[in-house]
């Protein structure tokens, strides 16, 4: 099973240090890890650094995978909907990178399966530029999922989705993580969804790791006061799920 461990990982943007000495314990396949933190905290930078899209100091230790160079798939926030392509073509495009021109039946079956799993098969022939924001986000998820990576880094994949779709996508990612033994890291602002679907949480503040561990231990009233400057309580709901209840801004 794939594992990921970060050791003193950093990154710079121009002269500004955007990520500083991030070290995590071993994160294992089959888990959902919520990456949380305020806006511009460095969550996207962390993902890009892990995916090898930007350089920086430190080591990204990746073990238990034989998909050299294709083990990690990063889903950026930008859904890139300017190209004159259909949804189906854009997902095929993600699947076929570095491969031959010809498309065989097995590859099309994979694409159909991903579109069906995300419940977007019916918009497969629609042009990308005719999609809503939420639909684009689902297509971006399909483009990432179709590459069958061992580690998925999803940058705010549910930010434009309605509540039904949010639950549907997070549920799907949870199932896929368990089924494929895939490590799914999701940058997310909805802490209740993080508590509900994630196994672990990583808190990033000003490019530094503030905490990493099981959600219940990381998402606490103290952390919310310190990181988000809000007064909040974590309480169990009637179905025994932890829930963040915000009382207001911290003094």
């Amino acid at each position: 099973m794939v594992t990921l461990r970060l050791e003193d990982v950093g990154a710079r943007h121009g002269r500004r240090q955007t990520l500083t000495a991030v070290t995590t314990p071993r994160l294992a396949g089959g888990e959902i890890v919520a990456v949380i933190g305020p806006n511009a905290a460095g969550k996207s930078t962390l993902f890009k650094r892990i995916a090898g899209l930007i350089p920086g100091p430190g080591e990204v230790h990746l073990d238990g995978t034989d998909k050299a160079g294709k083990a990690i798939a990063y889903m950026p926030q930008d859904t890139g909907a300017n190209a004159v392509l259909t949804v189906y073509e854009s997902v095929l495009l993600a699947r076929k990178q570095g491969q031959s021109w010809t498309v065989d039946e097995a590859e099309l079956i994979e694409i159909d399966a991903v579109l069906a799993a995300l419940n977007i098969a019916d918009i497969g022939q629609r042009p990308l530029d005719a999609l809503s924001g939420g639909q684009r986000q689902l297509v971006a998820i399909a483009q990432t999922l179709v590459r069958a990576p061992d580690i998925m880094l999803m940058d705010e994949p549910t930010s434009a989705l309605d509540i039904y779709r949010q639950v549907e996508v997070l549920q799907l990612m949870q199932n896929e993580a368990r089924r494929r033994g895939m490590l799914v890291m999701i940058a997310i602002h909805d802490l209740n969804q993080a508590l509900r679907f994630a196994d672990k949480a990583i808190v990033i503040v000003d490019g530094r790791l503030r905490a990493c561990g099981p959600c219940a231990e990381v998402i606490t009233a103290d952390m919310l006061r310190e990181v988000y400057r809000i007064e909040a309580r974590i309480e169990k709901c009637s179905r025994d799920f932890d829930h963040v209840i915000v009382d207001g801004k911290a003094a």
Binding site: A51, A73, P76, N82, L93, W101
Partner: peptide, 18 residues
């Protein structure tokens, strides 16, 4: 061909495809 098509989705997206 596949890489060039991906570049029409933007640099970041194309890079995320490898």
């Amino acid at each position: 061909a596949w890489a060039l098509t991906a570049m029409r989705l933007g640099d970041e997206k194309a890079a995320s495809f490898g």
